[in-house]
Write a protein that binds this DNA or RNA. Sequence first.
DNA 1: ATGGCGCGCGCAGCGCGA
Length: 254
Amino acid sequence: MKLATWNVNSLKVRLPHLLDWLAVTQADVVCLQETKTEDANFPRAEIEAAGYQVAFAGQKTYNGVAILSRHALQDVQVGIPGLADEQKRVLAVTVGDMRIVDLYVPNGQSVDSDKYQYKLAWLDALAAWLKIELAQHPELVVVGDFNIAPEDRDVYDPAAWQDQVLCSGPERAHFRALLALGFKDAFRLFEQTEKSYSWWDYRQGAFRRNMGLRIDHILLSDALAQRCTACTIDTAPRKLERPSDHAPVVVELS
DNA sequence: ATGGCGCGCGCAGCGCGA
């Protein structure tokens, strides 16, 4: 069982990359963020032709999430229950016995902005909801673009990013609070090469210079963590022409 | 040096991302 998360930064632009990548990796489940595609324009036929069922919740210009699955996909839910939020950032589905939550966490812009306060409040609501989900679904996986680099080793230049958005103490505390609910950061279950990142700015040749952050994550409930045999970041799509600025993160479960 | 790149929208140049 192979499960992946990828912020594609426009599904319309990245569809050829996605289809090529699906053919190579043969992932069972793929969670997408930043589709930036209204539901009426979602490329359902192309994705179904590749062998995937699909659920999606999109909007114009911003945000948008989708989940692709080679297996039956059930109990689709959009958004965090009880949280009034027009932004399409959350999608949950069930595949077999596994509950899958796909997140596009708010960016926050900067620590002194209203968007940062929105991000922290959003993360509070997320944690309250995931606590309930975990009680109902022991096999729970939470993936996506968290827009948080959990530790300094997830940042190419920790001094420059200290207390900046994506790396600030309150954001990292919220990330740890999510783990404390009963999740493991799948990437850290394994020995990894140093300076492993999932996002690189388009500017300044950041990818070539590996000036990145690890902000895309896969959180596994303890029951799933025991079955996890690998977690990798696939940088191959980031090397293509017109890439997403994010790379896919992949886990394998026995 | 506060932009630099890429995207959507929409047809010029701006907001946004991270």
